[in-house]
């Protein structure tokens, strides 16, 4: 529990103003914010937010409780070993889309993991229509055994109806 970092997870039905309500309350209580990731998933509001607070987990829960009640949100707080300024740079990006939803996640991530992909970031979404859903996924990560190993694996494990695109991330520092 170094540096008093906590991971605050909030889930609930999405409505305007949730982020503002939560962050204003935390800020007023003297919290610092670290990295955060907010998404709207299937009409639900979700956020994971690094919060630095010296007063301990229990008091942090009390700060959040009234807002959670008003906005009908479920909150969870974990004390964590927080660390900022520790970004890892991805060196490969993979986009996948297709019709078979379970197949895409299970098959593609499995194939990539066996070929040495360490996933840093994954986002997936469902587009298309009710009868014809299209599953879309973006992955960024580090190719531990090189990008060619991933390319080969995707090529060998090719599934009909699923398109995969892999590109190297070559970061410019300038």
């Amino acid at each position: 529990m170094t540096n008093n970092w906590h991971m605050l997870t909030v889930v609930g039905k999405d409505k305007p103003g949730i982020v503002a309500s939560i962050s204003e309350a935390l800020f007023a209580a003297g919290c610092n914010f670290g990295e955060a990731s907010m998404s709207r998933l299937g009409g639900n509001f979700t956020i994971m937010l690094m919060v630095q607070y010296e007063g301990g987990t229990e008091r942090l829960e009390k700060i959040i409780a009234p807002i959670a009640q008003t906005l009908n949100l479920r909150c969870h707080i974990n004390a964590i070993e927080g660390q900022l300024h520790a970004h890892r740079e991805p060196d490969v990006r993979i986009s996948v889309y297709g019709q078979d939803r379970t197949g895409i996640v299970a098959h593609v991530t499995g194939t990539l993991a066996r070929a040495g992909l360490d996933i840093y970031d994954l986002e997936s979404d469902v587009g298309g229509s009710g009868e014809n859903p299209v599953y879309i996924m973006h992955i960024e990560g580090h190719a531990m055994r090189g990008v060619d190993a991933l390319k080969e694996a995707l090529e060998t494990e090719k599934t009909p109806g699923i398109e995969t695109h892999l590109e190297e991330i070559d970061t410019i520092i300038g």
């Binding site: 300024h85 970004h87 740079e89 991330i169 070559d170 970061t171 410019i172 520092i173 300038g174």
Partner: peptide, 13 residues
């Protein structure tokens, strides 16, 4: 689209 970092912007790309 490509990824960029900068000597003037440490620890972020």
């Amino acid at each position: 689209k490509g990824r960029e970092g900068c000597m003037s912007v440490p620890d972020y790309t």
